[in-house]
Amino acid sequence: MGRYLLRRLGFGLLLVFVVSSAALLLTRLAPGDIAAPQCLELSAEKCAELRASLGLNRPFLPQYLSWLGGVIRFDFGRSLLYSRPVGSLLGERALNTAVLAIFALLAATLIGIPLGIYTGTRAGIMRSIVRAISLIGISVPPLIGSLALVFLAARTGWLPVGGMTSSGGLELTWAAWFADLARHVPLPALALAIPMAATLERLQSEAIASASHEPFVAASRARGVDRSRSILHHAWPVSLRPVLGLYGVMIGSLFSGSFVVEVVTSWPGLGRLMFDALKARDLFLVAGCAATGAFFLAAGTLLSDLLLAYTDPRVTTGESR
């Protein structure tokens, strides 16, 4: 287990390193730079001074190396767009995206898995209805889902449209802040969760249906265990293998989806930050966002793989016992 973890850790670090370096390099190569808007109002010499003071004219390699050196010390440099250290900016926004992602995953799991168990083990009209809804759910990607939900919210006023908190939220107590969050989270989280829930439902349904046909399940029934117990205690844990494997894959699409949802619902998360940083050519902020994103990606996939290994004794981590 230890070696496996180490290997995955190494992979994660490599991912973060490559992704953030690539982002830094690409942004450096991009036309225009962060000083461009201000430079228009300045003379040529003043503009050169400004660029020099912002460090925009340094050759790439020394700049890259000094940035790397900073990153090891958890100093991600300074954002020129927001006039703050990148680290603090990243911390806030990444947290917001994480909150959204966690709520979305929770919702998807709480909706998809039970429904999947239901449709995989029963027959009848309800099953067909749920399967049809699931098919529709898969066909509602986050872009469409968030637009539809925003429309619904704007029309009915049931939920606040967009944003993460109500402003003026300076002296809110914890309970009030949480309540405020609880009102703003459902819309974006649902937009993300719908296709994931549908995918989970279908996979869970298939997996548990085939697991229910395994001999050991029939054996348990023969022993006198009632139907629901035999499904939940014997068939379900086995069916979890492909389902948990899906979580690892879903992390990537969770990120992609969260970007769209953040833009449509003005959720102040990592995706929106990276977009603004890219447009403004804010070097270190882009690299920081890329690094954070890669980190969460690697961490997420590692977690789900570990979960998979933990729950199914048939999965090995490549080590002999």
Binding site: L26, A30, G252, F255, S256, G271, L278, K279, G293
Partner: peptide
């Protein structure tokens, strides 16, 4: 492994 939209975004935005 990378999220599709992010890669597309970065490539387009630069």
């Amino acid at each position: 492994v990378l999220p599709v939209i992010y890669v597309v975004l970065v490539l387009r935005a630069v």
